[in-house]
Design a protein around this nucleic acid. Sequence first.
RNA 1: GUCCCCAUCGUCUAGCCUGGUUAGGACACCAGGUUUUCAACCUGGCGGCAGGGGUUCAAAUCCCCUUGGGGACACCA
Length: 482
Amino acid sequence: MRIRVRFAPSPTGYLHVGGARTALFNWLFARHTDGTFILRIEDTDRKRSADRYEKAIIDDLRYLGLDWDEGLGIGGKYGPYRQSERFPLYKEYAKRLLKEKKAYYCYCTEVELEARRKEALRKGQTPRYDGRCRNLRKEEIKRYKKEGRKPTIRFKAPKKKVVVSDLVRGEVTFEADALGDFIILRSDGVAAFNFANIIDDMSMEITHVIRGEDHLSNTPRQILLYRALGIEPPKFAHISMILGPDRARLSKRHGATAIAEYRKKGYLPEALVNYLSLLGWYPPDGREIKSKKELTKEFFLDNISKPPAVFDNQKLNWMNGHYIRSAPLKRITDLAIPYLREAGYLKGRITPAKKKWLLKVIEATRTHLEYLAQVPKEVEVFFAKEVKISKEGKEILKKESSKRVLSTLKNKLKEIKEITDKNFKSLVKEIEKETGYKGKDLYLPIRIALTGKNRGPELRFILPILGKKECLRRLSLGRVGK
RNA sequence: GUCCCCAUCGUCUAGCCUGGUUAGGACACCAGGUUUUCAACCUGGCGGCAGGGGUUCAAAUCCCCUUGGGGACACCA
């Protein structure tokens, strides 16, 4: 049988790293097994769901390159793939359970329920529905109806031990009285999560449910529902949570958690995917840098690790930097252009000559990058109109040796047509020969006079990128080099 | 509070299932090399089996307890 897995986000917020990791694991498993990856939207909470989130989630999945074979925007024979369009189906199954006496109407109001819940919590008891509406007498029902109460439908949870057989955790046993009768259809007729979820998994013939560990304790409820419907449940794999540095569940207060934020900051999809793949999974050969193709080949549910994983931004940054350095220069340059525009360094159309120049600028600076939003800061020296020299820099320029090096450089520059990658070396050699200075005495004054800073991109990049004219202009700024 | 999950360097983790390893790798950190600087890169170093009981000739590995962390207990998903 062909493997069918799904990613089923609810559109109540942006795709965050945890969701992305779940989507990725599902995707990898589907691709590894040549199965089907399905995207389904769980929007039964009409109040919190929003179209813009649905759109954003789709954008982010596309950005990560996690394409789906069936579902939203694609269709398929198991559709519709939006739960809000499947309400009749849930109702039908709820009615069936009602008829089979496996569910019942409950007339308790939200206010009553909440009060009882709080009371139980206060007393240190497990908050659980007491089943008081299980056997309502006719007159009671009449009275409630008269009061205008709209009933929910509750599932009669059998008081039996439930064993969840989990692919990553093994057999997990839940005690018989751990759960009360839970709501499957709300008073407004909309299915509750546990119900809609299993009806869809069942009717979409999902074979493996790979999801966050926070769903592990939902699973016994769902298994009970499968049993009541006489259906074999899918296989479950609960992957551990992603934590912040303080070991609390990762959330906004830990900083960036939305994939969209990482995208905006200029994280490459392959870096994000690669880093996320390492959160709770380990490649058999121990080599961590992996393309999506390799990940697909090697990913299997066996080597998923159980303990929760702390999200390490430093490692992500390192990995993103690695991909920035090893990607084709042209691609990184193209990706950097929007950031340069935003910084005001680039305006209008980019001529081929300008593009060529930009490639060099990125080549000179990419080794310093962790993410693309850092580009403007790194390339500043090439765009600055003025050269601001630090106090220490001024001290160095005051030295007799510096003055001689710079005036020689100036003269040499005037003699040549243009400074290029090729003649840079010989130019420096000539200055060295003529002045007798080398090393720091030779290079540092040039760097400072040209950029104002004593660190930055390599000089062999700086001179050709600035060009003869700009070099001479900068040398004459602030009476330097006279 | 009750139930469930988890526990190897600061972090991600390999090793655990099928006891015998100098407990391995990656990020970070430190040092050296390379480079005119920084970065990148290369080499080396620092650093860990939460604690306590068992079982066994032998325990990171199997069992129990403690501790710690996380999750769930909604007309949220």
